[in-house]
């Protein structure tokens, strides 16, 4: 555990909590892509199957359970509890265009051809593109509430910090997880345009993000 990894995990947790509380407190999921949230729930489900097969640490187990519970709770808020506020007309990204290639790739390029390992690989690949429905929705509507942009900022920052963690681990322990690193770079690239808008617009005091 190094500082980049810890800050990355904290950033990830902060992002998920921001989104959950935003929906819970405002009793509305307006502007939020339910499809992205279902994909993230799928990411955690397929990645954390090792909760049943291997124990790494109390920290690891607790974080996995928290991520799983919060991701499903968020999906519940969007599709059941506050369904009337869900903007399905703007959430039109075709997720099968992500799921099919990602599933195919996880069978082709993995560390071990076993169900649990293929599902882990699937989760890594899927995570790198899971935010696309949300970004697509913002592009389509041309705006996002600032609280939504804070969520996206911390979610993007998390994987960027993991990149620093992987550089650190490579130099200190020779650790190199090619699948995670390549996917992590791809994932972070998707956020770059957003990071630019976040810094130049939201942090300059605009109440919401409007696209030029």
């Amino acid at each position: 555990m190094n500082v980049f990894r810890l800050l990355g995990d904290v950033s990830h947790l902060v992002a998920i909590i921001i989104l959950f509380l935003k929906i819970f407190r405002s009793k509305s999921c307006a502007g939020i892509s339910g499809k992205s949230q279902v994909l993230f729930a799928l990411v955690f489900t397929t990645r954390y199957l090792d909760l049943f097969t291997s124990f790494i640490s109390i920290y690891n187990t607790v974080m996995k359970v928290v991520f799983l519970v919060l991701s499903y709770a968020t999906v519940y808020l969007i599709y059941l509890r506050f369904r009337s506020s869900y903007d399905s007309e703007s959430d039109t990204f075709r997720v099968e265009f992500l799921l099919v290639p990602v599933a195919g790739l996880s069978f082709l390029e993995n560390y071990d051809f076993t169900p649990i390992e293929i599902l882990w690989t699937f989760s890594i690949y899927l995570e790198s593109v899971a935010i696309l429905p949300q970004l697509f929705m913002i592009t389509k509507t041309g705006e996002a509430e600032s609280i939504t942009t804070h969520y996206l900022f911390f979610l993007g920052l998390y994987r960027a910090l993991y990149l620093a963690n992987w550089v650190w681990r490579y130099h200190t322990e020779g650790f190199f997880d090619q699948i995670a690193v390549v996917s992590g770079v791809v994932q972070t690239i998707f956020y770059c345009d957003f990071f630019y808008l976040y810094v130049t617009k939201v942090l300059k005091g605009n109440s919401k993000l409007t696209l030029p």
Partner: peptide
């Protein structure tokens, strides 16, 4: 596979 790959990251 005789040995499972260890993923210690989240």
């Amino acid at each position: 596979a005789d040995e499972s790959v260890d993923h210690d990251e989240l």
